[in-house]
Design a protein around this nucleic acid. Structure first.
Length: 492
DNA sequence: TGCGTCACGGTTGAC
DNA sequence: GGGTCAACCGTGACG
């Protein structure tokens, strides 16, 4: 047992080292900057999810952070940070970058301030602040500062005789308790925000213990999985890995700019030149040359190579290493048996099947225009359609999950939210019919669709075009009709 | 030697 | 469209 574990660790380190050698070798080294350990990074940009996941996986295997740092050539500070974040939030994903804090001076708050001022013209700003807290209009996280209140009094309520923009008759609907879908809430296990004071309540949302939402009102990458309701499954299958396409999708074009050296014209796939594989438009990597465990590290395949993020745009092989599969001795949450290890050869082939985006797309997805090297940005109707497709596909996952759960002992495989699946469904003979790449693409596509950015919508076209309906539909009983109907949907 | 912390320079996205 | 601001990032140095 100990020997096996040691061998496993050795394989892991060898595998990681080999893959990282590949990652850091060749023209890839010209991208970004090189740290003291020889690792390549892009200043200001998060590490690719594959590396982040690898860090967590290695840590869970008992490898010391310092060794992880050396192996992955990532600074130990970064390793420490990622592990700390993972331990605290359970997420390997980076935080939301950019943006502004939510406004605390919501119309509702301004209305109350005006009411206070009208009721007592001599009231001080700090008194207003206290009353906002006392009346439950705000909590300690989103109460405006005294200076903000003063500014409101000066600018917006300076002339109480004049109907202001927040006239009650014109008062917009009160701020809902959750102005966004509550499923966007951060999946923090405790009411204490991981960022401490930085985490504020949402404007207009009275604080409540045990329920701290991300202060930003846009979907977070951390929480999108919860939107899907298959976060557990995604994590179990390691589907979050290899989601660089999602993590960096918003600015793929800019990454392409960073990518001084575009994708090799003839990328090597397991030592074989790619053209031979591309001849069939879609190519499948053989299980023999891939570590099944890292199958999920493959990038969102359908994205044009020219748009792959620069330094992290190494072909799938960049994260892959030849040799035996990487079977963790025990299945940690992120390296559960479903994390690719259980994939059989054929399934792995399905899991890493790349499809030419212009040939196979979801209904409603405008194919990638290779000649223009661009996607048509979907309109609103297309986006809605895509969302519908996702829900259908998600249902397929659920049905298959329930079915597998019965086979393996009962419907308890489905958690209380009705979507999460238990670990056993990722075991061999369980949900292996559902290639994790498909789950990954569902996840990524969902993330893109939920994004407010047009570029992400476009990325959704790319990502979803990787999803192959038929095997998924056939994996779930009684889904053939739905699946066939989807196939009949005309491409817009 | 290992690890937590923090300043730094950089990127990002809402306003 | 560009500037500002505040979030984030990973690195590297320090203790």
């Amino acid at each position: 047992m100990v020997v096996f574990f040691a061998l496993g660790l050795g394989c892991v380190l060898m595998l990681v080292g080999t893959s990282l050698d590949t990652f850091h070798s060749g023209s890839e080294q010209t991208y970004g900057e090189v740290n003291q350990l020889g690792g390549v990074f892009v200043n200001g940009r998060p590490l690719p999810n594959a590396i982040r996941l690898r860090i967590v996986e290695l840590a869970q295997l008992g490898i010391r952070p310092c060794d992880i740092s050396r192996q992955l050539r990532v600074s130990h500070g970064c390793v420490s940070k990622i592990l700390a974040r993972y331990n605290e939030t359970g997420s390997i994903l980076p935080g939301a970058i950019g943006g502004s804090k939510p406004r605390v001076t919501t119309p509702n708050v301004v209305k109350h301030i005006r009411d206070y001022k009208q009721g007592d013209p001599g009231i001080f700003a700090w008194e207003i602040r206290d009353r906002l807290l006392a009346d439950g209009v705000c909590d300690k996280y989103n109460v405006p500062s005294v200076s903000s209140i003063s500014r409101i009094l000066r600018n917006k309520i300076g002339s109480l005789t004049q109907p202001g923009p927040y006239e009650p008759s014109k008062q917009p609907p009160p701020q809902p308790a959750l102005p966004y879908n509550p499923i966007y809430q951060y999946p923090y296990p405790s009411p204490v925000s991981p960022t401490g004071a930085k985490m504020g309540g949402h404007p207009g949302v009275p604080g409540s213990a045990g329920h701290v939402s991300i202060p930003r009102s846009w979907p977070s990458a951390h929480s999108v999985s919860n939107i899907l309701g298959i976060r557990t499954l995604m994590e179990q299958t390691g589907a979050l890995a290899g989601s660089e396409g999602a993590a960096y999708s918003p600015k793929m074009e800019e990454w392409a700019g960073v990518n001084r050296t575009p994708f090799p014209a003839t990328p090597m796939v397991n030592g074989l030149e790619k053209p031979a594989l591309e001849a069939d438009i879609k190519y499948t990597q053989s299980a023999s040359g891939l570590s099944a465990a890292v199958g999920g590290f493959l990038p969102a395949c359908a994205y044009p190579a020219s748009n792959q993020p620069g330094v992290y745009s190494a072909p799938g092989g960049g994260y892959l290493a030849p040799g035996p599969p990487w079977p963790p001795a025990q299945g940690p949450p992120l390296a559960s048996p479903g994390a690719g290890v259980s994939l059989h050869g054929g399934e792995l082939g399905a899991a890493v099947t790349f499809k030419h985006p212009s040939r196979e797309v979801l209904p409603g997805v405008t194919p990638y225009n290779s000649s223009l090297n661009s996607f048509h940005v979907p309109g609103r109707q297309q986006v809605q359609r895509l969302k519908g497709e996702l829900m259908t596909l998600q249902l397929h996952v659920l049905v298959a999950s329930i079915d597998t759960g019965r086979d393996s002992g009962g419907p308890s495989a489905v958690s209380e939210n009705g979507f999460q699946v238990s670990e056993r469904q990722c075991n061999p003979g369980g949900l292996t019919q559902l290639p994790k790449s498909r789950l990954l693409h569902l996840e990524l596509g969902k993330q893109h669709l939920l994004s407010r950015k047009t570029e992400d919508k476009r990325q959704a076209c790319c990502t979803l075009s990787c999803v192959d309906h038929t095997p998924l539909a056939s994996a779930a009983h009684g889904q053939s009709e739905e699946g066939s109907r989807q196939h009949k949907d005309p491409v817009l």
